[in-house]
Simulated assay, not measured.
Amino acid sequence: MKRADFEEKLATTAKTVGDFLDEVLKSNQLVAGTPQRLLGAMRHGVLNGGKRLRPFLVVETARLFSGDAKAALQVGAAIECVHSYSLVHDDLPAMDDDDLRRGKPTVHKAYDEATAILAGDALLTLSFGLVSSLETLPAPARASLVTLLAKRAGAPGMVGGQMLDILAGDGRSEIEITRMQAMKTGALISCSCEAGVILSGASDEERVRLRHFGDLIGLAFQLADDLLDEYGDAKVVGKATGKDKAKGKQTLGRIYGRRVLEDRLDALVAEAEELMQPFREKAETLLEAARFVAWRKN
């Protein structure tokens, strides 16, 4: 698949997900009665663009196993709500203290800190409502998705990874950094791939395979982030660079340098390609996603 074709497909899915979330926040019973200021902050946090990589992985993994496309869109949107809530909270002064997100004021700047906290809380709980209300899926599949999302988004996953990042200093080892990255960033990306298998009713063996594939993409995503933060141009990246260095946080980019990390990214892509060989050309879109994550410029 040509990169241009892939990027067009990614953009199309991103728009579809954005339109779906826009409609949910306008008329879905899950948000009925929400105070307007809180609803505005939620919209600001989740409808501010982005690649929508996680829902894209859900949709494409479900497609690989001939899963329900509408169910995949709703589960992907739920995971995007979790991702967006994490960004709203990460931007807070108590966390990363960022004023801009994708070129726009962060939620706590556009509104206030208390509203931003509540908007994040509301997006998180909305995500579980979106999954549990999917009546087109069998109840066991819905329960499995809720459990998966709780683990990957919660203390053993994304939230725990953020805690490790807060506690981190300049003396972190490679093992400590890799564990933090796998939890903070990789858990939700891997969750997206695994969710696509669950909602499709595929086998446990395929679930394990796609979970591993998601783990590889998650690691590649964070390694690419380290490269962009250490060596990227802020104008191209679209956000401030050098933040980890300024905060005294050790990264793999600082430990090993650009060339070693680029070689590792190539190796991760090669491993992903080998893992998906049984699916042949049916997996080409997912493989292009792995390449895109590893070699992105922003």
Rank of each mutant, 00 (worst) to 15 (best):
M158V: 01
L223V: 08
A187L: 08
D91H: 05
A119Y: 01
I166V: 13
E176M: 08
A119V: 01
D215G: 03
V237A: 04
M183W: 09
S203M: 08
Q181I: 00
G161H: 12
L227H: 05
G103D: 06
L64V: 03
A114T: 11
E271F: 02
D22S: 11
S27T: 10
Q250V: 03
E8F: 09
R3E: 09
L216N: 04
V82S: 10
A153V: 01
S192F: 12
H89T: 06
E113F: 10
E23D: 13
D170C: 09
Q74G: 04
V146M: 14
V237E: 05
D226Q: 07
D99L: 12
G214F: 15
V59C: 10
E288M: 15
N298R: 15
E262D: 10
A11L: 12
A187P: 03
D98A: 11
L268Q: 06
A141P: 00
E206G: 04
V269C: 04
D22M: 08
G103K: 11
V260H: 11
A141F: 13
T34Q: 13
Y256D: 00
K243Y: 04
L92E: 07
V208A: 14
D5V: 02
Y85K: 03
I177Y: 15
L100D: 06
R296Y: 00
G218F: 05
V208Q: 15
A155H: 15
R63C: 05
G120V: 03
D266M: 00
D266L: 00
M158G: 04
H108F: 07
D19V: 05
A289E: 00
G171A: 14
N48F: 00
T185R: 07
D226L: 08
G49A: 11
V237S: 04
A62I: 08
T251F: 12
I79K: 01
R211M: 05
F65T: 03
F6P: 01
L268G: 05
H44M: 02
L275S: 07
L25W: 12
G186H: 11
L130G: 02
R211F: 13
L219D: 02
L148C: 03
F20D: 12
K51A: 00
M180L: 13
L199G: 00
H212S: 10
C81D: 09
L126I: 03
F128P: 07
R259G: 08
V237N: 04
T136V: 12
D97I: 05
L227T: 03
A294I: 07
L188C: 04
A72K: 10
P156F: 08
D226R: 09
P278W: 13
E273P: 01
D99P: 06
R254F: 08
D5P: 01
A69L: 14
G76D: 05
C81F: 07
